[in-house]
Design a protein around this nucleic acid. Sequence first.
DNA 1: TCTGGGGTCCTAGGACCC
DNA 2: TCTGGGGTCCTAGGACCC
Length: 431
Amino acid sequence: MRQLPANHQSLLQSIALIDCNSFYASCERIFNPKLLGKPIVVLSNNDGCIITRSAEAKALGIKMGEPYFKAKKIIEKNNVKVFSSNYSLYGDISQRVMEILLGFSPEVEIYSIDEAFLNFKGFKNHELLTYCKHIRQTIKQWVGIPVSIGVGSTKTLSKIANHLAKKEADYEGICILKGDEKIEEALNRIEIGDVWGIGRRLSKFLRNYGVCTAKQFAFLDRRWIRKNMGVVGEKIQLELCGVSCLDLELLPSPKKSCCVSRSFSRPIEKIEELQESIANYGSRVAEKIREEGLIAQSMSIFVLTNHFNKKEKQYSSSIKLQLDYPTSDSKLIVKRAVEGIQRIYKESYRYKKAGIILYELHSSSSVRGLLDYDKPRTDSLMRSLDEINYRYGSATLRLAAEGIRRSWHMRREKVSPCYTTSFDQLMIVKS
DNA sequence: TCTGGGGTCCTAGGACCC
DNA sequence: TCTGGGGTCCTAGGACCC
């Protein structure tokens, strides 16, 4: 057998990827056990697309990212349970899972809402399986979420292992990918598009060159990869060959940008309504950076028409705007955003989406707002605003520019209760 | 009728300078 | 009229991730 292009010298290097199965669907099931074994889907904002499917829903042929209205027929015919996404619930459950994982390794990278990398450096291979079984069982028992675990000597290999643990029933949710032969055989079963970092475009490009599996990619000439795919491709190949290029990021790196954008529940034509919506998003994004103790120096806003609607004329525009000084003051950010809309708005288009992105974020304590004469007053005003909205619900207290009726506001027709984060929505046990 | 949102990183190309 | 070359920096846009 040919050797993989690089040796797996680091036998003791073990990284585990723990990934919650159909996370949002599993969250809904915790509080509604009747849903166990039943097909479930969870919808994106605005009840637009299907973003999570339980295993049963996948088996029915419902595709990831499919628009809800297109899948409605299958859904109704098979009595699939449908939920609008409920991020405060999922965020809370995620925290509970992550807290458990922090107890299983001193080095944990929380990679996304439903995934974490754990460093198992120094573990002997035969210990790994027992340990992973224990993790899986603990999370199931304490939180009620099923997880899959993949272990490999690099992040990319642990992703591959996780993929196999999920896809192939024999693994029973845990795949330890160790030993050159075993790795090579596994890479042979992985389609190129399922490799972490190879998306739609690259996978099409590679297939055109006859590279269809992860194994073929691992054996490609590295100079060719460098030339055609840049450093990104090169790193992926090295990682597949057991050479670690991606370190665990134990501390979350500071945010560089912060965005709030939404599609409207119906097309908007009037500038007043666009301004009202951008004022809302401005307010939310300012609130978000205040929560993290950040201030922004610049921002951009954007508007889009509905590009799916081929019959309508299309327009999209964005504009970059400077703030007078770094700030997290909702009033200033909203004011600038509303002015910005005036500059990019064009009449007689039907707008579908708008958004605001804040840039050049810094810690609010690290920068003295020399130009911000009003800083103490503003800070205390914003603090009160945040406290009231935290206690009485988001946007209870808001700027006049944000409007009252907000008829363009997003749809969320099938949302479950916030079982764990809202007192008035706690589960009631009747006896 | 109805098609998500929030991030990061990399690269190509233009502007500018000497 | 002819009009270099190399370096840096910035930005927009693309690709990817979940």
